[in-house]
Structures are given as C-alpha cells and as structure tokens.
Design a protein around this nucleic acid. Structure first.
Lengths: 124, 124
DNA sequence: CAGTGACATAAGTCATTACATATATGTATG
DNA sequence: CATACATATATGTAATGACTTATGTCACTG
C-alpha cells in the first residue's frame, strides 16, 4: 500500500500552518478582500509583530499574497475558494465530532447510529 | 468584525490533529475500509505503540471510529467524505503554492498572473 | 537628510508534542 | 489459571513553535 499516492498524505505542511488559530483568524479577517496589515491587526487584536510573524508563515506557505502600495502592504488570499473548502471541512467536522452547539451534539448522536449501520456493511 | 462567525476559525483543533504527517498516513491507510491496528502498523511501518498513540488522538478528535472484534480492534473513518474534502484541499494547495512537480510550478506562475488581475479588481 | 509611520526580522523564553521505552489491559485458548 | 496475542497507556526526553521584546528596513514628507 503506497500511502504517498493518497493526496491527503501531502497536507501535513499546510495543516501545520493552519493549525494555529490566529492564522485561521487572519484568513477569516481577509475573506475575499485585500487588506493592509493595520486592518488585520485591528481585526485580530494581536500585536503588530505577532501579525507580521504569522503573515510571513502564511505567505511562505502560499496561503496569502502580499502587495506593497506605498507605505502599506496589502494581503489577500490567492483564491478565496480556500475558505469554501475550509467551510465544507468545518461542516464535516461539526457533523462527526462532539462540537460546541447542543444541536450539533444531537446530530452527532443520530449520525452515530447511521455510522454503526454503515460500518457493519463495509466490514461485512 | 466578528471572526468567530467564520467557520474556518473553529478548525484549529482538528488541524492540529491533522498536522501530524503520520496521522494523515493512517487516514490514507484506512481509506473507505475498516482495518485492524495490525494492518495500520504494517501499512505505515510505524511501531505499534506509536500507532496506538496516534489512533487515540484521532479517535478522541472524532476522525476515526473504533470497534472491537474479539482480539482485534477495527478502525475506520466515520465518513469517508473527509478524504474527498482533503483531496479538494490538496488540489487547491497544489494549484496555489510551490509544489513538488515542475508542472505545478508552471501552473503557479500562470495563476500568479491571473491573481494579479483579480487582486486589482477586488482592491479597486 | 531627518523624522515619522508601517511593517519585517532577530533573539530569547516557555509551552506543547512526537517518539521511544516500559508497562498495563483486554481477549481467546488449552 | 497460565499463556499468547493484540492493543492501550504511562513516563521521560528532545524537538518544535508561538509569543514577547528589541531592533531593523522601507516608503513618504518636509
């Protein structure tokens, strides 16, 4: 079994970048727009140097693009489709794990039942 | 700006789990099947205790489900749709970051050009 | 050029985590 | 019950990374 042929097996590095909550919040602050660092600092309420530190890691990972305009540097996502993918991932996670809202917990219980049935059939 | 309303901002914990390459390889080893731990050990070539350690973290995160069958414990994904989502994420990453294959690097250059145009329009 | 504001980088500290080694627990069989 | 196999858990260590403080670099203006 060649695990490297599985696309997911290559995602370690980008997940390492995304595993830091403040980096996710930076991506959310950007959304579909290009914004200067001052905006990000204000939106996240993080210190400037910390924002710069995280932006460099996001930039080197290819998750954000930077463009200088005079005194300001604007950052944006190379393709906002990333946030849509992350949203579908969050939906999957919410549906299959213990999550924050009581409604989601109830869904997980129901999901658990159908998972039991599915597991039986795939192991049969 | 309320960053917590962005779905992606809640993905930190699950990304932390997925950021470990061997855990991704375990998920790839499972694919759409339920497999005993011995299979995973063989597929990943990791020590038994290390596999157990990672499986516990995956299990507690809700990313795998466990079912004991006699001496064996079988693990599988609660929903293999996760791998499809990860595949689309890997496709995004490959298209927007410096990646392994020369072809992908060429695509990134082309993508860079269209990103320049897109950025101008969204910042206009 | 000096001063100012925006932003990046360097260095040190502390917290977190993967892994190896040792040990414990669960199941099945004679 | 003793033994064997499968698997989980406990403990310690080394590596990694987020954050803070200090400092450097860039762009602009008078």
């Amino acid at each position: 079994m060649n695990l490297e042929s599985c696309p997911a097996s290559h995602l370690g590095p980008v997940f390492k970048v995304l595993a830091e909550p403040n980096r996710l919040r930076i991506l959310c602050a950007l959304g579909t727009e290009c914004r200067p660092v001052t905006d990000i600092i204000h939106a996240t309420a993080l210190p400037q140097t910390n924002v710069s530190f995280h932006l460099r890691i996001l930039r080197e990972a290819g998750l954000v693009r930077a463009e200088r305009r005079g005194v300001f540097i604007y950052y944006c996502l190379p393709d906002p489709e990333l946030l849509a993918i992350l949203q579908s991932l969050q939906a999957w996670v919410a549906a299959h794990t213990l999550s924050s809202t009581p409604q989601n917990q109830e869904d997980s219980v129901n999901e658990g039942v159908s998972m039991t049935e599915r597991r039986v059939s795939s192991c049969g």
